[in-house]
Amino acid sequence: MKINKKNLDYFLLISPGLILFSTLIIFPICLTIFYSFFKISFLTNNYDFIGYKNFYKILYKKEFFNSIQIVLVLSIVAVTVSNILGIIFAKLFNHDHKIFLILRILIFTPFILSPIVIGYTFATILTDKGILNQFLSIFFINLEISWLGNPTYALVSVSIALCWQLIAFCTVIYLANLKNIPRELEDAVEIDGANKIQKFRYLDWPLLAPALTINTVVILISTFKLYDRVLALTGGGPGRASETIAMLIIRTAFNENRVGFASSMSLLLLIISGATTFIALVYLGKREVDN
């Protein structure tokens, strides 16, 4: 059936979604670009055009580079740790016995929970007299680490809370991928006398490429918008030691009331996150095809 202008019913179907999507997702992206050339205050409702000045200021903004660095470190850690542990869990659980069925269901639960719940859960575990330090002291390891109060460890704590949820996700995606690997292939490799590492290197690893792509992209996206977990865990502190880029943008816009400046940072974040995701997709996607 051909669509022509008379097909009012067709437009009734297609337009609501597209209109809503354009007004609340696409148009805001354009507005962010537009705003980034202005000095805007919500307090006084002033809009002053200042050209590229916002971007010029970002060059001198330590906090911005600090946050970018934090997010990059977190994403590298999250991509490596979650993927490795995800594969290990998936290989372990890839079995038809009932026990593994139950474990497979349970292992995914962290991903179902709200990041802010996870943030507060880990916040209570990681305080100075929290469970982790108590637990370590049972083994006479009196590290007395201030997991949330020390700038370096604060970032470690954030990574733990972040990876915990992402490992759950990765495991499930890898499991789904493993199911698609034919049994015969595995048996064939085993007969060839390959050892475990070889088997993984030449059989599983290439065949798991699609799952690796999905996981890596999802991990990157969730690191770039990381907000609630960190808010609950460290509040971005101590100082600015764990302030993510999303927190910086929200703080600048709504707490410091510099909407234009925040928009220009958003624009840079959009470019950085878009580029990273794109590179990951292309690079990993190519790997999928190669094999």
């Binding site: 305080t127 007395e144 201030s146 949330l148 109060g149 502190g237």
Partner: peptide
């Protein structure tokens, strides 16, 4: 002179 727990 300050408590080590200050920031937690």
């Amino acid at each position: 002179w300050t408590n080590s727990t200050a920031l937690s």
